[in-house]
Design a binder for these strands. Structure first.
Length: 593
RNA sequence: GGUGGCAUAGCUCAGCUGGAUAGAGCACCUGCCUUCUAAGCAGGCGGUCCUAGGUUCGAAUCCUAGUGCCAUCACCA
């Protein structure tokens, strides 16, 4: 029973005994700093049931609580706000209960239905960029948050491995590549393939210009440029299973997968299962047939198949082209069904995809419902805002994309520069240093992206480097390192039982315990709202409180052993909570920095 | 044009289901390293919470209308 519930019961009792009225609920909020007290009861909402002057009502309830509840040490009423002072023993007790729990904040897994979280979902024709980075960080973090909230989670992606885009790279490589390979060039596979995507575009543009110069219309030229026709032909050959094309496709996609894996590892994210579009679109087609039989879909005279969603206030949506080939929607229907077949324990799915596809997912979920799948009501589109540059959208063909690998490297370099200036790590080996720079650089990047509400767009200015001070990853990592330093210096105290019973809590200590108390609730909240930002902001508040404590109260220099070991234990708990919170954000914490 | 999202300090962002005088960081200005790591702490400056109405004891938060930016409305993905 937490403080909130306990007090709610007592306030209800108070109102019943004083005013003979039944409250349905009591509204609490944290007491503002400028007033004495720890928790505040808002009296106004009671006025509907209890008539009278709010100040007087507050006063009488306060009086009652002080007399009947041991926890309540004192109270004051300001306007309609009843500020309650809680006895230190409550906080000390609470702290004693949690200070040994390593995975504090994390709920036991009890839900036997699992959730599948999809993220990343790249095309295989170019390397990952900053946009993917946001996607991957969000998806990974939300997965970890869901786990921490007590759910079973499978992390997955859908790899867009077929289609005209990869054929363009294949064709350009065939034509201009001189049998280059990642091995022969030393390039990452995804970078190599991406280069040929750019090569294709160059050649295509040149052909279009030539055609226009020879009198063709712009529109015709764009449609009939020979290299484009050839790429389209290659796609048809792929679909008909042409051996050479398929072999080339395997080879180049293989290069890309290896490159992606390196980037994922670099970022520090992983997946439990991979899905490939080339393997799921056929299942989608089957279910289009199924839906035709049951009347969920309808066929137009030209043979195209549609789903009529006008009853839902939406349009008609195509699910199969007139030539019988699959569209995006077909594939997504197939993929969803395949996943449930593979993992029957999955009861819902989260799709981490940019908000430009809000409409698509609205439709997809509706269609799956219409097809009668029980789990369709538990689908969630984790829709996030675009990452824009000052110049606007990132365009791979215009070379304005921020490459994921480059970005991570630059962040580590910045961390290195700052670290060298501060010069606290002289005794570290080169490997240890490098590892630390990466931890800090990645911490800065991940925190920078995750602290923002997912649905808001992010403006990223490559010229202005990401901060390492203030509300940032490194600030929080730094605080963790400080705490570890204290723990190293007080190892002899850790084992000792701090009785902590006769301690008068310092205001900063009480504040810290209150903040620690919130953590489990924050995890649950973040899981419900699919928002790592809530975790980031919570952690920042905790760390600010700790630093204030650290700089105003001497930990190792406490007046007596009892207080000293209490403060060390409190620091340790804060450190553990930082570590736990950051682990669900996918951010590592350093022992020193 | 229809639909959806966003709009809070010079900049980047918090603000939970409506609650007290709207909070942080960066930037700018003051102090604080012979004591646990100054990537820090303490303080100052800085706001028509896009606009106009409405609901309410009470609105940055809810409703309506408008403005601005973004996305989307394809036999593209």
């Amino acid at each position: 029973m937490n403080l909130h519930n306990t007090l709610e019961k007592h306030v209800k009792d108070a109102v019943k005994s004083l005013f003979q009225a039944e409250l349905k609920s009591v509204e609490f909020q944290a007491t503002r700093k400028e007033f004495a007290g720890d928790i505040t009861v808002v009296v106004f909402p009671m006025l509907r049931i209890v008539k009278g002057n709010p100040a007087v009502i507050g006063e009488r309830i306060g009086q009652y609580l002080q007399e009947h509840v041991d926890l309540v040490k004192g109270f004051n009423v300001v306007k309609g706000f009843l500020n309650i002072e809680i006895d230190d023993s409550y906080y000390i007790n609470f702290f004693k209960n949690i200070c040994q729990i390593e995975n504090y904040g994390f709920a036991e897994a009890k839900d036997n239905k699992a959730i599948m979280v999809e993220y990343s979902s790249p095309n295989t024709n170019k390397p990952l960029h900053l946009g993917h980075v946001r996607n991957v960080l969000l998806g990974y973090s939300v997965s970890e948050i869901l786990k921490a909230s007590g759910k079973n989670v499978y992390k997955t992606q859908i790899i867009n491995d077929r289609g005209i885009h990869i054929c363009k790279s294949m064709l350009a490589w065939q034509r201009f590549g001189n049998n280059e390979t990642p091995e022969s060039t030393g390039l990452k596979g995804d970078k190599l393939v991406g280069n040929y995507y750019v090569e294709f575009d160059k050649a295509y543009k040149k052909e279009v210009n030539d055609l226009v110069a020879n009198g063709a219309s712009e529109e015709d030229a764009k449609k009939n440029a020979p290299i484009l026709l050839e790429a389209q032909e290659m796609l048809r050959q792929w679909e008909s299973g042409d051996e050479n094309v398929v072999a080339l496709w395997h080879k180049m996609n293989g290069w890309v997968y290896k490159g992606f894996e390196a980037t994922y590892q670099n970022i520090g994210v992983d997946f439990d299962k991979y899905y490939y579009e080339s393997q799921t679109y056929l299942l989608g087609k089957e279910f289009v047939d199924e839906g035709l039989k049951t009347g969920v879909f309808e066929k137009d005279p030209d043979g195209s198949v549609w789903c009529d969603l006008t009853d839902e206030g939406l349009d008609r949506k195509i699910v199969l082209r007139s030539d019988g080939t699959a569209v995006y929607m077909t594939q997504d229907i197939g993929t969803a069904i395949q996943r449930i077949k593979d993992y029957p324990d999955v009861g819902g799915m989260v799709y981490t995809v940019g908000n430009e596809q809000d409409y698509h997912f609205k439709v997809l979920f509706l269609i799956l419902k219409k097809l009668g799948f029980e789990w369709a009501k538990n689908l969630y589109h984790l829709s996030y805002g675009m990452v824009d540059l000052p110049s606007g959208k990132m365009k791979s063909r215009e070379g304005t994309v921020v490459d994921a690998d480059d970005l991570i490297k630059e962040m580590a370099e910045t961390a290195e520069e700052i670290s060298k200036e501060l010069g606290k790590l002289e005794d570290y080996s080169e490997t240890e240093k490098k590892e630390l720079y990466k931890t800090i650089g990645l911490g800065a990047l991940k925190y920078y992206i995750l602290k923002v509400d997912p649905k808001k767009r992010i403006l990223f200015d490559p010229k202005e480097s990401i901060d390492f001070q203030g509300n940032t990853g490194p600030f929080i990592q730094y605080t963790y390192a400080r705490i570890q330093s204290i723990l190293r210096k007080s190892e002899h105290l850790i084992g000792e039982n701090s009785t902590a019973d006769n301690i008068d809590l310092h205001e900063k200590e009480r504040q810290l315990i209150k903040q620690l108390e919130l953590f489990p609730e924050v995890i649950q909240n973040a899981a419900e709202q699919h928002s790592p930002a809530l975790i980031a902001n919570y952690t920042y508040d905790l760390v600010k409180d700790f630093n204030s404590f650290y700089q105003n109260v001497s930990i190792l220099g406490a007046e007596n052993k009892n207080e000293q070991s209490f403060r060390v234990a409190l620091s340790k708990s804060v450190g553990q909570t930082i570590k736990n919170a950051f682990s669900v954000l996918g951010i590592d914490v350093p022992e020193r920095m």
